[in-house]
């Protein structure tokens, strides 16, 4: 395959030192993720998927091994470059939405653009466009507390898209949402990844995610259990549902 790799993880291990015992959460992970794919990282709780996810997002450093984003080893980046990476290259979506409570929806969406140096007017313009893209026209002046969970997650999706990132990292994006709202967010992410060619990586144990994923990476006990492409998946899930 000659497609471009956006994320490459080689031999990543992560130990958490809890004083008396050292917990080995990741025990050597090798992964390659291609540009433009919708990838789901699946696994039971405690399998290390969130830890792996944090490594890919540059939020945490591996004990051993390397994480490359766009062929740049993120362990080599200084604080400034890391901030730049988080600001421009990666858009984060969290299980708990994590909107800034004192800011309105629009201000939440424009904040990453402010950090990126976008002039205020252009940021507001793009912010409004993004909010309508995620189906929140007319709600730009609302504070997060005045929005429902699904609407808050939509704002978070718009915020993640603010600087046209190459990667969107979604950690359990549907974890705090009900079934239908979760499906809406999933299809929104899928649609965005198709339209803009953004790579979407989501850590989840939500089986609804399987239907839209191009690739599913199963994590079990700190290792990659198996990697399934879309074609294999449909047979698999088809088999389960029948």
């Amino acid at each position: 395959m000659s497609e471009k790799l956006i994320v490459r993880v080689t031999g990543v291990t992560k130990d958490f030192d809890l004083g008396k015992i050292v917990v080995k959460v990741l025990k050597g992970i090798d992964l390659e993720i291609e540009t433009g794919k919708y990838v789901s990282i699946m696994g039971p709780s405690g399998s290390g998927k969130s830890t792996l996810f944090n490594m890919i997002g540059g939020l945490d450093k591996p004990t051993q091994g390397k994480v490359f984003i766009d062929e740049v080893d993120i362990a080599q980046l200084d604080a400034y470059e890391l901030a730049w990476l988080r600001c421009r290259k990666i858009g984060y979506i969290f299980q708990t939405f994590n909107l800034i409570p004192v800011m309105t929806a629009l201000e939440n969406v424009t904040l990453p653009m402010t950090f990126a140096g976008t002039p205020n007017e252009a940021a507001v313009h793009r912010g409004m466009k993004l909010l309508s893209q995620v189906g929140l026209e007319g709600r730009h002046g609302h504070k997060p507390a005045e929005l429902s969970g699904g609407q808050q997650q939509r704002v978070a999706v718009a915020r993640a898209l603010a600087n046209n990132p190459s990667i969107i990292l979604a950690d359990e994006p549907t974890g705090n949402l009900d079934l239908s709202t979760g499906e809406e967010i999933i299809s929104l992410l899928k649609q965005l990844s198709q339209e803009q060619g953004t790579t979407v990586i989501s850590a989840t144990h939500d089986f609804k995610m399987l239907n839209v994923s191009d690739q599913v990476i199963w994590i079990r006990d700190g290792r990659v259990d198996k990697i399934q492409e879309r074609a294999e998946l449909e047979i698999h899930t088809g088999g389960m549902s029948s």
Partner: peptide
């Protein structure tokens, strides 16, 4: 804490 962490994820530097 969470707000600060979120800001850092969005690219805020320590000095911000």
């Amino acid at each position: 804490f969470r707000e600060i962490g979120t800001m850092k994820c969005l690219g805020a530097l320590d000095r911000f």
